[in-house]
Design a protein around this nucleic acid. Structure first.
Length: 657
DNA sequence: CCAGTATCCCTTTTT
DNA sequence: GGGATACTGG
């Protein structure tokens, strides 16, 4: 390992000195000891990581002992692919993925050591809420008081406690003081939730991290083995990690201190998930002797865009100070456009897209970004009408729609027959079976103790038994030992189609989604793996997208939530609904911390643009929650002088306003 | 105990 | 403007 110190005298295949600027180069060749890279938007963060991966491999580090933790698996794959392009395909063997998927892999490997038996199911947020709801009903018996927190809120509280490494009590007192009276009940539901998860072999997202941490803490031999097997650790998007993840990193890096984290405190946008950009500020304390390198040269945006984004982020109160600069002078001034209504906002976008297209800008170089998934509904209708192909990223996911979850439930019980939530889902689809009957059937199946084949032999009342005959046939047909994932999926879909037609009036559309799901299944050899991926890394595209998948090819306009646009860039970016009360949402206006996160979100959106940037806001929108008419543009863009941000209006305005 | 109807809630963002 | 929950009739 000492030889790396003298790397300057070694010959490398990749011309690092010419390909990288001086800060990037410094980050790439600093391979020993902790390193913090503060990377401004568009400053070549991915480039730096990619070159560093290649550099480590060139230095002779075994790819398997390099760990690259990223925000999505796609990001990791993309980086490794690019590194392989620079060097060779050794780079593909690097261990990479999200914290959650990495934890999942380790836990599968050592599950027996922590009493998890041979397997576990990962439940998503919806399942976890459903389970909490079940327990709440069982425990409270009496009817829900309207002021008692909803399932969703309970799940949020539980999750925050885990991710911020706090007690339930802390979270309730800090963030939900109005529920303080219910504290005891909340705590006991949390306890019951934990117990129930163990009984059913469920791990929720947070448990993956929690168990992983426990595994490392409680088993020094495993900690030693795991941490010493990763000589180098790299973490991308560090500003979006939380306390729990920081703890895990400390454990992972306990054997070798070669840990590099990259992030931008100004782009921290996941506080709602427990992320805390303070993490990145504290890295030097956590790893004494850490080197800090700042990347400030922006390669993405033209000067006028950068002028604006620098002003936006200046309003943030706490940050590592850095000022981005570019050598790309000239270019178009960003524009703030007031439109007469939501629909004229959509019309404006469409008009501009036609213009851009005529100038030779391909559709896939244009993106429309928004705060929340539903903000694009009207635009989606207008785009379809104008025959402009698009793909939507973020918001509602394909796997979250009822019909997909139905299919997955049938497959989940094959893997884990104790999966009560899935059984419920399956059984409630059937006629004459409600909550109670479903519970009885579930108990009967569990008593058989013969996996999901227990359904075939379980003692169930005659009348009910008739409703079950179709389902029995189904499980009689499936043999998970010999069938392929695709085959099993096909059988389930055949069984399900009649139920689909009965249940949904838009069944033709949904049936196409099922075909899409089957085509995904074709790529998998193991059912377990398929189900894990559907929970841990589900396709991030919306339902509609699965239909338009084939039309328009790759040249499609991108509609995306700002969260899902992280790390990406386009020639032209439109940020719609830049209306005060929507962005920032009226929800966050009274909370300085939340408001600041909205500001960073606006910053992330604006810094996605290379050449042109538009903000649009419809005027005079009625806001239900506050009963106010929203008239002003986002406060993050208000009172910025015309020299930096141009102003326009579009559409027909009533003269009375 | 199921299934249909009334009512109330909230209404980001994602692993 | 929708989804989940509560209530009620059968």
């Amino acid at each position: 390992m000492k030889e790396t110190v003298n790397s300057a005298v070694r010959n490398f295949y990749i011309p690092y000195e010419t390909d990288l600027n001086s800060s990037q180069l410094e980050a790439v060749i600093h391979t020993e000891g902790p390193l913090l890279v503060i990377a401004g938007a568009g400053s070549g963060k991915t480039r730096t990581l990619t070159y560093r991966v290649a550099r480590l491999v060139e230095e002779g580090i075994s790819p398997r002992s390099i760990l690259l933790l990223t925000f999505t698996r796609k990001a990791a794959q993309e980086m490794l692919r690019r590194a392989a392009g620079l060097l060779d395909n050794r780079c593909e063997n690097i261990s990479g993925g999200t914290f959650h998927s990495f934890a999942n892999n380790i836990l599968r490997k050592y599950s027996r050591r922590i009493g998890l038996g041979s397997g576990f199911n990962i439940i998503d947020r919806y399942d976890s809420e459903a389970l909490i709801g079940l327990l709440r009903k069982e425990m409270l018996k009496t009817h829900l008081q309207s002021s008692f927190p909803r399932n969703h809120t309970l799940a949020t509280i539980f999750s925050k406690a885990v991710n911020k490494v706090l007690t339930i009590e802390d979270v309730v007192y800090n963030d939900y003081p109005h529920f303080a009276d219910y504290l005891d009940t909340i705590i006991s539901i949390n306890k019951a939730y934990k117990i129930r998860k163990t009984e059913h072999y469920y791990l929720d997202y947070d448990d993956l991290l929690l168990c992983f941490k426990a595994l490392m803490e409680e088993h020094p031999d495993l900690r030693q083995r795991i941490s010493s097997s990763y000589e180098h650790i790299m973490v991308d998007e560090y500003q979006d990690t939380n306390q729990m993840q920081a703890d895990i990193l400390t454990l992972l890096a306990s054997a070798n201190k070669n840990i590099m984290v990259v992030g931008d405190d100004s782009q921290s946008i996941y506080a709602f998930r427990g992320a805390n950009f303070i993490n990145i500020m504290r890295f030097p304390e956590l790893f004494p002797g850490a080197r800090t390198i700042t990347l400030e040269e922006n390669y993405r945006s033209d000067q006028p865009i950068l002028d604006l984004t620098n002003i936006i982020i200046e309003r943030a109160s706490e940050k590592y100070s850095k000022t981005l600069f570019t050598r790309r002078k000239g270019g178009m001034k960003p524009l703030l456009v007031c439109t007469s209504g939501e629909n004229s906002q959509s019309k404006f976008i469409i008009e501009k897209i036609h213009e851009l297209n005529q100038c030779g800008i391909p559709l896939n170089e244009i993106a429309v970004l928004f705060r929340a998934g539903y903000h694009s509904f009207d635009l989606e209708i207008e785009l379809t009408r104008s025959n402009i192909p698009f793909k939507k990223v973020g918001g509602f996911k394909f796997v979250e729609s009822a019909h997909i979850k139905d299919i997955l439930a049938h497959l989940k019980v094959l893997v884990n027959s104790r999966d009560r939530l899935s059984w419920q889902r399956i059984l409630l689809l059937l006629d004459r079976i409600g909550q109670q009957t479903a519970n009885k059937i579930f108990d009967a199946i569990s008593n058989e103790n013969s996996g999901c084949k227990g359904l075939l032999t379980a003692k169930i009342k005659k009348q009910v038994s008739e409703s079950l005959s179709g389902l029995k046939d189904l499980f009689g047909k499936i043999d998970s030992e010999v069938m392929s994932v695709y085959e099993m999926g096909g059988i389930v879909v055949d069984y399900y189609l009649p139920l689909l037609r009965e249940q949904f009036d838009d069944h033709p559309k949904r049936a196409k989604d099922l075909e899409h799901l089957l085509s995904i299944m074709e790529r998998y050899d193991s059912l377990k793996e398929f189900l894990t991926d559907m929970t841990l890394e589900p396709p991030n595209t919306s339902i509609d997208d699965s239909l338009s998948d084939n039309s328009g090819g790759d040249d499609r306009l991108v509609l995306s939530t700002i969260h899902s646009a992280k790390g990406l860039e386009w020639h032209t970016v439109f940020v719609i609904w830049a209306l005060d009360g929507r962005f920032p949402s009226s929800h966050s206006i009274n909370n300085p911390e939340e408001l600041e996160e909205e500001l960073r979100l606006m910053y992330v959106a604006a810094t996605r643009a290379r050449k042109s940037l538009y903000f649009t806001y419809p005027k005079d929108v009625y806001d239900r929650s506050t009963g106010m008419v929203l008239k002003r543009p986002s406060r993050f863009l208000d009172s910025i002088n015309n020299g930096i941000l141009g102003k326009h209006s579009f559409g027909s305005f009533s003269q009375f306003y």
